[in-house]
Simulated scan of single mutants.
Amino acid sequence: MKEHPLILVADDEPQMVGVISYGLQNAGFEVVMAYDGREALQQVEKCRPDLVILDVEMPALDGFAVCQKVRTATTIPVLLLTVRDEQEEIIKGLELGADDYMTKPFSIRELTLRVQAILRRTHNSDQHSVDIQPLHIDFDRRRVTLHDLPVELSPLEYRLLVCLVSNAGRVLTWQALLKEVWELEIWQGDKEMVKIEIYRLRQKLEPNPSDPIFIHTERGVGYYFEKINK
């Protein structure tokens, strides 16, 4: 994880944005602000924050719409803020890909702890290795082994594996993978590119590629790497 992760705070109440931003900055985060849904999406594209905090009720585009767009096209985690502690609203946000939610009012201390927890779960850049027998990944040496035997991966295959592992347990859409791994916009590639590379990676890593235990398919949505118990 970066020393000073960048957090996007989006809320149509300037006072709320100010209070949250001040608290996060005191906790060592860098902050960028937005005051409606469209501006939030523009800041995501421009700044590529490490995490997005979205108020559900915003003008232009509401938090649900922004969350869906962010999670479709990127791997950036999302924390939703809502004034209504209603189960249906919470479930809707989680189904759209939000990583967590908080109900207003809340303490800035709790918000900061939630942000830190999400970043720990979704960023493994400070992790030196992953060991899920019989697969072992050494990030420092860029070395992958299966049953203690080296696995030769192309640079693209390795980047795809790192992206999936860094988001273990989270479903990533093909659009998000195209953006993060290939560094292409949606119109510059297609679903088939990702599908083929997933197939190749499974052929090299899975003991039985037709019944994968590491890289799973969420039908109609995308792919995810088996959740890693830390």
Rank of each mutant, 00 (worst) to 15 (best):
V78N: 06
T82D: 00
L80D: 00
K92A: 07
S107R: 15
K104P: 09
T72F: 11
G93K: 05
L81T: 05
L94W: 04
L79Y: 07
I108R: 04
V70Q: 13
Y101H: 00
V78H: 10
L81F: 11
R71C: 07
T74K: 14
L81A: 11
T75D: 15
R71G: 01
K92T: 13
E89W: 01
V78F: 01
I90E: 03
A98C: 07
G97E: 06
E95A: 08
T75I: 02
F106V: 09
I76T: 08
D85C: 12
V83C: 09
I76P: 03
G97K: 06
R109Q: 08
C67I: 08
V83P: 12
M102K: 08
E110D: 12
R84V: 15
L80P: 06
K69F: 01
D99Q: 15
L96Q: 06
R71T: 12
Q87G: 03
V83A: 11
L94V: 02
P105V: 07
R71L: 09
V70A: 13
E89D: 05
R71S: 06
T72L: 12
T103Y: 00
K69T: 00
K92I: 07
V70H: 10
E110W: 11
I108K: 14
L94P: 04
M102Y: 04
L81S: 05
L79W: 07
D85R: 05
V70S: 10
T74W: 15
T72I: 03
E88L: 00
Q87W: 02
E110F: 15
K92S: 07
G93M: 09
D100A: 04
L79K: 12
T82V: 09
Q68K: 12
R71D: 06
E95N: 15
P105Q: 01
V78D: 06
D100K: 08
E86G: 13
D85K: 09
A98G: 08
P105L: 09
R84E: 14
E88Q: 15
Q87H: 13
V83D: 04
T72D: 12
I76H: 15
Y101L: 04
R109V: 13
K92V: 01
G93R: 10
P77F: 15
L94A: 01
G93V: 11
L80H: 03
L96P: 04
L79R: 11
A98W: 14
T72S: 10
D99H: 12
G97T: 05
T72Q: 14
F106S: 13
E95P: 03
L80R: 03
K104L: 03
R71H: 06
T82C: 00
E86W: 11
L96Y: 05
E86L: 09
R109N: 10
E95L: 08
G93C: 08
